[in-house]
């Protein structure tokens, strides 16, 4: 198997590894780095469970070769929460019970985080449009939409709070 030397940053940590050329990014993250928060479901880029950030853009890690992330900055669901606690999106998923089995949740959390960075106050239509590529088989989606609206609200009120200080 031909291999490639890859130097990348994963969740802020530099990583250097020789990996088979055909290895998928999700296999590299899960099997080599032990970052199992990223899940594989459909295996063909339609369910969104494997969503991670590559250079701040959400991508399906089941559809990217690991050797192609050389020099990139990768963030997985494990890289979101800080010592201060959950991110507003994560907290909103908890508060709104926007999950059941949780297998799709890391992908949704990543995708919603990306949405709110770009569009801090989305409409419900924008939320649905943005999440069209993430499947959830448990919740019926309504609580997820609610969580995103909730997170947007708490982020914007936190921001205005900061300005106050």
């Amino acid at each position: 198997m031909s291999e490639t030397l890859v130097r990348t940053t994963v969740n802020g940590r530099p990583v250097e590894a020789r990996i088979p050329n055909r290895m998928l990014l999700v296999e590299f993250l899960r099997d080599r780095l032990g970052l199992t928060g990223t899940k594989v479901s459909c295996g063909m880029q339609v369910c969104g469970a494997c969503t991670v950030f590559v250079d701040e853009r959400p991508v399906s890690s089941c559809g990217v070769l690991a050797c192609d992330i050389d020099g990139a900055d990768v963030v997985t669901v494990e890289g979101l929460a800080t010592d201060d606690g959950l991110t507003p999106v994560q907290q909103a998923f908890v508060d709104c019970s926007a999950l059941q089995c949780g297998f799709c949740t890391p992908g949704f959390v990543m995708m919603c985080t990306a949405l709110l960075r770009k569009t801090p106050n989305p409409t419900e239509e924008q939320v649905a449009h943005h999440l069209e590529g993430n499947l959830c088989r448990c919740t019926g989606y309504e609580p997820i939409v609610e969580a995103v609206m909730h997170a947007a609200e708490s982020m914007s009120s936190a921001e205005s709070g900061t300005r106050h200080d």
């Binding site: 199992t36 979101l80 999950l99 949780g102 890391p106």
Partner: peptide, 22 residues
Amino acid sequence: SVPRTDAVAKVTGAAVYAVDVV
């Protein structure tokens, strides 16, 4: 409607499923 006790593990990627077991 107390919050789910598994919610934090599931939103942070810490929740372990069979497929994650090594």
